[in-house]
Design a protein around this nucleic acid. Structure first.
Length: 865
RNA sequence: GCGGACGUGCCGGAGUGGUCAAACGGAAUGGGUUUAGGCCCCAUUGGCUUAGUGCCUGCGCAGGUUCGAACCCUGUCGUCCGCACCA
């Protein structure tokens, strides 16, 4: 049996020794940048799911490389991060030791997958050569007002012991801990002004060739809405509020302010103080989760707001359902919002309505929330909602009482973390000078710290206590580190110039390689990494460091690999598949082929032992075939047609990530090749088509048929459309039908045939179709007349009818008698050995003759003796 | 609640207006080869039909558009995903 592992090791070594995957800038060649999201190296190593991800990218990179692109295909490790820190604490091991061991293990495993990375460009985010530039960018942002420090309500995960960005809170819980609710703390933290680019981030989404789903998720995340800002006067002060439905303003009967509003105290009157405090205590005592299910509750503040349109005084309430950080933390409440109505009914606040539907009547209990026609709205009565909104905005702007505005859900990025294993924030706190940027980068992450006593960096006095770079007085360092999403926001830039000690990357090199042409990764990063990275590129562009607007032109989301039981792969379920184990039995090429053949690579798939065995049969057959192949010099038009067609289609399939379809076509082509006389060119082309999927095997067989050099860097085959002849396919189809008919007849007769007689008659359908091809008439009578064949008076009108309905559908090729005879003669031997009997092919001169043999003309009649 | 995706044979899955759906793989059954087989080869796997590139049914369910729909539209049921008191 073939030793696939030996073959794989042989070629992996050769690839490495000859450095064929190493690339550098080459202005003469077109570049192509293929990238998979770099992994977080965990101690458990990689499983088959990782292998699937990398295989998808590797196939694409190999494909583009053979198409003569200068392909940048690098790998690196997202090495900083909490899991390493936590695991290290648990194992009583320094995070650095843990991470380095994990990376080493990852690299070794990845290398055994036969991935065509340029390993010389490896990037590890935990090395100071890398994170120095994190600090550099941080300070650049700081200088340019893109980084600021602010006290605000922030999300805190008690399990991670750190604050989290908005993007890292899912359903009120920590993204790493599905069971842990995030607490809101009021802390001073570092933010990056991502919102400066809200509009551009939103607008540029349409430029991206990304899955629609991801684009939509980003759109919703940024969450732009148009509306109106209105100043309500409360206690002589202006309180701007945001609404999308200013047209409902004449029905405002109360206001609701968020319980977390920073200026809440100024609204509470002496008389209401007690009641309000009780209420606030009550909401604080319930957890975030319970709050979700909670009814709307509130309490009157004692203050009144003046509606600028009506001059009416309406009460201001505190409500648990108003968000503090969206809009202005206060809303106007009216009879056209379900939540407001619910709230008002509970507390017996009066309600008004001012909008009615255009074409129907509302029923008494209905809360009409759609747009309609205004009434009871002063000068605006009778207008439609849309008209009224514009007029009201003008009305407000003329009186300086408000304006048309935009709102985004998107917020600034909270980047500081109170944890150790990350990039130190290069800022010094000086009592005299305030926030002072560190001049000497990198600020190294000290190795000696104590864990479990708050912020680990604060435990290293040598690190914390410094002299102020400006005034040289005693100062202290920032002890927070950066969110690791900062690292992953620009790693793809570093690949362009990973050894540069003077700059993060040389602009010229970045200009050559960027943007990433094809990015590959999971959908879980839609609203995290993929937004941060887009922000980063735009920010660096505006700092003059880049000339691109977007980092990733095309994005592909691969599906997830589940265990054989249909569940997510996990240790606790014991369904984890490890590439090494699979390689030992089947070889990694077989695994690669199997993984991409199950389904379209963007769909979730399940591991299947039976499935990979099926692919194993194929790879073994391949080897067997090539070991015994006799290369012919003869021309074989039929095979050439099939080969050219396969080249055309497989090229298109790979381009559009239909790897599953491509592998099927490879198998089909192989079936044809193995049955025919084949020349060297066809064999070579087949191996080339195979090589992105099964690179080791392709190299081995390439060598076996007498080639030198690597197939991996050979040229992708080109097809000649003139050589693709559709007739051959019909021939095959015809033979399939003949075989199927013979089988049916044998079954019916119930005996092994000694002689099979085949009467080939002139096909009446052939005649009909031939006549139809010449016809242009749309007159049914005329058509029937012209295509009529005697003996088929019943069928002809039906054909004529459908022809008139759609002449284009008549593209079908029907073989004529002569061709049928020829094909049968050619395949006679094959049929004889297949059915173990003699074959006689008889040309039937007339329909009558065939009928006399108990068969019907129009098809090959089969008789068994 | 809002937004999105999907629903095809025993199973995984192709096909997203036109050469009369099920490619390809898996599985099962029958046969061949074999000392034996878990290898390999062949056949069968919706119904009808005393073979005829045939007929009927059929792509969750019900309607509609079209000469023609698995594919487009509407409704409905089911599964999954994202966001979620966003004013």
């Amino acid at each position: 049996m073939t030793n696939f592992q030996k073959i794989e090791q042989k070629w992996q070594k050769k690839w490495e020794d000859s450095e064929i995957f190493k690339v550098k800038e080459d202005s003469k060649k077109k570049k192509y940048y293929v990238l998979e999201m770099f992994p977080y190296p965990s101690a458990s190593g990689l499983h088959m799911g990782h292998a699937l991800n990398y295989t998808i990218g590797d196939i694409f990179a190999r494909f583009k490389r053979m198409q003569n692109y200068n392909v940048l295909y690098p790998m690196g490790y997202d090495a900083f991060g909490l899991p390493a820190e936590n695991a290290a604490i648990k194992a009583k091991q320094h995070p650095k030791v843990y991470t380095e061991a994990s990376m080493k293990n990852f690299e070794k495993q990845q290398k055994s997958l036969g991935l065509s990375y340029d390993w010389s460009r490896i990037v590890k985010t935990c090395e100071s050569e890398y994170y120095k530039w994190n600090q550099y960018f941080f300070l650049k942002f700081f200088e340019n007002g893109l980084v600021y420090r602010k006290k605000s309500p922030v999300n805190w995960c008690p399990k991670c012991d750190t604050v989290l960005a908005n993007e890292q809170v899912h359903n009120g819980r920590c993204w790493r801990h599905e069971d842990t609710e995030v607490e809101i703390k009021h802390l001073e933290q570092w933010f990056i002004k991502t919102t400066k680019y809200s509009e551009e981030l939103l607008k540029d989404i349409e430029k991206l060739e990304w899955p629609e789903r991801i684009k939509l998720m980003q759109q919703n995340w940024i969450g732009k809405s148009y509306g109106t800002e209105i100043n309500f006067e409360i206690n002589g002060e202006n309180w701007p509020i945001f609404t999308t439905r200013v047209d409902t303003i004449f029905s405002v009967t109360f206001m609701v302010v968020s319980a977390q509003h920073p200026k809440l105290n100024s609204l509470i009157t002496e008389k209401q103080k007690k009641e309000v405090n009780n209420f606030l205590k009550k909401i604080k005592s319930v957890s975030e989760k319970e709050l979700e299910a909670l009814e709307k509750e509130g309490v009157f503040t004692g203050s009144y707001a003046i509606n600028p349109f009506t001059g009416e005084k309406v009460p201001v309430w505190i409500g648990n359902f108003v968000l503090a950080d969206y809009g202005s933390g206060m809303v106007m409440a009216d009879g056209h919002d379900v939540r407001d109505v619910e709230f008002a009914k509970k507390y017996n606040i009066p309600l008004k309505t001012v909008i009615k539907p255009i074409e129907r009547k509302t029923n008494p209990n209905e809360v009409f929330t759609e747009k309609g026609i205004l009434y009871n709205s002063g000068e605006f009565s009778g207008l439609s909602s849309d008209e009224a909104i514009i007029k009201m905005q003008n009305w407000l702007e003329n009186r300086k009482l408000g304006k048309k505005t935009l709102q985004y859900k998107f917020k600034d990025w909270l980047v500081s973390r109170q944890r150790y294993w990350g990039t130190p924030i290069p800022i010094i706190y000086c009592n005299k000078c305030g926030l002072v940027p560190e001049k000497n980068l990198p600020v190294l992450l000290p190795e000696k710290v104590e864990f479990g006593k708050g912020n680990p960096l604060a435990t290293n006095k040598n690190f914390v206590n410094v002299k102020c770079p400006k005034c040289n007085s005693d100062a202290k360092r920032e002890t927070d580190t950066m969110d690791t999403f900062f690292d992953s926001s620009w790693y793809y830039l570093r690949y362009c110039d990973n050894k540069n000690l003077k700059e993060a990357f040389e602009k010229k090199k970045a200009d050559y390689w960027l943007p990433v042409d094809q990015y590959i990764g999971g959908a879980e990063h839609a609203c995290m990494h993929l937004i941060y990275a887009r922000f980063f590129v735009k920010a660096l562009r505006d700092l003059g460091l880049l000339k691109i607007d977007e980092p990733f032109t095309r994005l592909f989301n691969q599906g997830m690999l589940h265990g054989a039981d249909g569940n997510k792969m996990s240790k606790s379920l014991g369904n984890v598949i490890v590439p090494e184990e699979v390689s030992k039995v089947y070889g990694i090429d077989t695994a690669r082929l199997f993984l991409v053949s199950v389904a379209s690579p963007d769909k979730d798939i399940e591991w299947s032992e039976n499935g990979i065995q099926g692919m194993f049969r194929f790879t073994n057959r391949l080897v067997d075939y090539f070991e015994n192949v006799k290369i012919s010099k003869a021309k074989n038009e039929k095979l050439e047609s099939a080969s050219n067609k396969a080249i055309k289609e497989i090229t298109e399939d790979i381009e559009s990530f239909k790897y599953n379809i491509a592998t099927i076509k490879l198998r089909q082509l192989f079936e044809k090749i193995s049955k025919e006389e084949v020349n060297k060119e066809t064999l070579e082309n087949f191996l080339k088509l195979l090589s992105p999927f099964a690179p080791h095997l392709a190299e081995e067989l390439w060598e076996k048929i007498g080639n030198k050099g690597f197939i991996s860097v050979s040229e992708w085959p080109k097809y000649d459309s003139k050589k693709i002849k559709i007739e051959f396919e019909y021939e095959d189809e015809f033979m399939e039908n003949i075989k199927s008919d013979i089988n049916t007849v044998i079954k019916l007769v119930g005996k092994q045939p000694k002689i099979i007689k085949m009467f080939v008659s002139e096909s009446w359908k052939y005649e009909v179709y031939r006549k139809l091809a010449k016809l242009e008439s749309r007159n049914i009578k005329e058509v029937i007349e012209k295509i009529m064949v005697k003996g088929y008076e019943k069928e002809i009108p039906k054909i004529a009818q459908s022809f008139i309905k759609n002449p284009n559908a008549f593209m079908k090729i029907v073989l004529d008698q002569k061709t049928e005879m020829k094909i049968l003669e050619e395949n006679k031997k094959e049929l004889e050995s297949m059915f173990n009997s003699k074959i006689e092919i008889i040309k039937a001169e007339s329909s009558k003759e065939v009928k006399a043999k108990q068969a019907v003309p129009g098809k090959v009649a089969i008789l068994i003796e």
